[in-house]
Design a protein around this nucleic acid. Structure first.
Lengths: 342, 342
DNA sequence: AACCGGCGTGGGAGCGCTCCCACCGTAGAG
DNA sequence: CTCTACGGTGGGAGCGCTCCCACGCCGGTT
């Protein structure tokens, strides 16, 4: 109670070795799963570890070896406000699950200012993580390339463009837009509009492409007045919906590129006295809690978010061990969840 | 392109020292802000650091010193599914903001199984972080005490009981319940019910206490049939609301201890043909996105979540440096955000 | 019988830092 | 003029690990 000095008092490799009656090297080999160890030694070491409750010192490991056993998940803060928030939590969930099995640490880095961004870049170049996971990158984000130059393995969530060269895990955003519009036209909508995300993001452009494909496939005339650009926020959704109502009062279906924007749109529709789905059918993307709780519950295109997180982690792990000659290029399918709004 | 060996090639303390024409010790002193350095040396070292782009090696630091410059934010996964999800994101946001300034790393740890829990406990005892932040602890969670025993600084988000001995940052949950009920009775409700969280959580009991105080202050009879226990989930909210409707058809106001439960209750009320707020007024807690997006928009008690995160981080930092003789005991005020549901 | 290859092993040499001790010089006191 | 005091400094000794080299010892060759 008196002394509060934090003496670790933890057993070291050396002590384990002594107890097991072997050398330091052998213990290290056992711990790291080297094949060049006799069963007898393996067993003795295992027992000594158990008895002593030995846990390797990560700092020492990082210093001696050339790795840190940690990866960073980077979230540009500007995005986290905009995006459907639960999205990040789901990503984190998936990443964390996959990482735990590999006994790797997850460092969370929110970047909200250019100062913090700079700090992170320094961080990267100091090789203080074995790899990075980058979420919601804009088309012009230099971070992925920086990582590549520095030789730090990186995996993106979403692409910056069709020709993305850095490893990525994405969802089928074209298909998402397409399936939403197909559903809308399938239930009889003839004037289908869309509320897009920020068009400097590839994800937003893809969903728009899907929308266009769907419109064309239904034999409906393309009409740019039916396209309103927004920014993934609720307020953006409101503004866009007002625009649409203004330009095309006869709109009878709306594909919003996120649930949150759909929620904004829904508010405007209510104020305008349009019933959902009778007057205007509405579909969002993300299948988030918001969708379930809306009135009427929102039909939405589900992305396998947690699975994306898991895949990203797995891909990064492989990239770190150098097991992958080719960078990961995964596009996961989406799924329309039909509720009452369309 | 050929060789991909990750040779760091980063400058070391030694190199900085050589360039600045001083000893290793002096450079270390400058970096760590020791007062025992002449201005001349300070300047020379500063310049050498800038020229070389020196960044200290964290692993070496951790190994030599007795710290890691990292703290862990622990989220029991069972909770994260139940709780209003954006909650955690806001906490993270606050924590991260405060930590960035202190140049500390944020380790995110989701605990979803007893195996992972065990791993984390091992982790803790291996002193691999300088401190821990624990979120949403149940009354019987042993983790805080474990941390205390191991001498690892810890700060809780929320208390486990009135007599919490570990440092904490909480919000005024009694006040939250009280202000909600006051508002309800103030607008004329005479049969005010409550849907509680899991009663093994102090936060839930506090909100219930606040409810009771409010009922009594309004001179209304206490009636246990007006209290339905749930678990912070939407489905729990539904069930509880059905119970209430069943037991007390004359209920005219409901205080739900979370927005998500309020959303569940709202659905049941709609199905039962009760209008909100005309027949039954409804209030939630959290002021989350869900509240804004409900129909009608939900009156809710706002907690300063991000601020709590910030305070927790600050408290932990102080606890780590030993600047605080007393563990932090902060209770932040809440605020009723009036919308249309009550 | 001397030879060789390879498995299994012990332990030295760092990794880059912090801690701390010893040392220098200078300034004030005796 | 010597003695002490202390601010400022250099550098040794680790921290606990991984890497790798060198050394046995074995069986199977010539």
């Amino acid at each position: 109670m008196a002394v509060s000095g934090r003496q670790t008092g933890r057993p070291t490799l050396e002590e384990v070795a002594a107890r097991a009656g072997v050398g330091r090297g052998t213990v290290s080999r056992v711990i790291n799963g080297s094949p060049r160890v006799s069963d007898r030694a393996k067993e003795a070491v295992g027992q000594a570890i158990a008895e002593l409750g030995y846990v390797p010192n990560r700092a020492a490991r990082a210093l001696a070896g050339a790795r840190t056993d940690a990866i960073a998940l980077v979230i540009p803060e500007t995005e986290s406000r905009l995006f459907a928030e639960p999205y990040f939590l789901d990503i984190i969930r998936g990443v964390s699950a996959e990482l735990a099995d590999a006994d790797m640490q997850l460092l969370l880095t929110l970047i909200r200012s250019s100062k913090e961004r700079q700090r992170f870049e320094q961080y990267l170049s100091a090789q203080r993580v074995d790899g990075v996971l980058l979420v919601s990158v804009h088309g012009d984000d230099p971070l992925p390339d920086l990582a590549r130059e520095l030789g730090v393995p990186a995996v993106l969530n979403g692409r910056r463009s069709a020709g993305e060269r850095v490893a990525y895990v994405d969802s089928d955003n074209v298909g998402a837009g397409r399936s939403a519009v197909d559903h809308l036209t399938g239930r009889g909508c003839r004037r289908v509009a869309t509320i897009t995300g920020p068009l400097d993001m590839y994800v937003a452009r893809c969903r728009l492409d899907g929308y266009r494909q769907g419109v064309e496939a239904a034999g409906l005339p393309a009409d740019d007045r039916l396209v309103a650009a927004a920014d993934f926020t609720e307020e953006g959704g409101r503004r866009a919906m007002r625009e649409l109502l203004d330009r095309c009062p006869d709109v009878d279906g709306v594909f919003a590129a996120s649930d949150v924007m759909a929620a904004g749109a829904r508010g405007v529709l209510r104020e305008a006295g349009r019933r959902v789905p009778d007057d205007v059918a509405l579909i969002g993307v993300d299948d988030s809690a918001v969708a379930r709780l809306m009135d009427p519950p929102l039909t939405s295109v589900r992305q396998p978010i947690e699975e994306m997180g898991r895949r990203m982690a797995r891909a990064l792990l492989r990239e770190i061990t150098g097991a992958d000659p080719e960078p990961c290029r995964v596009v996961l399918p989406t799924e329309l969840v039909v509720r009452d709004s369309a």
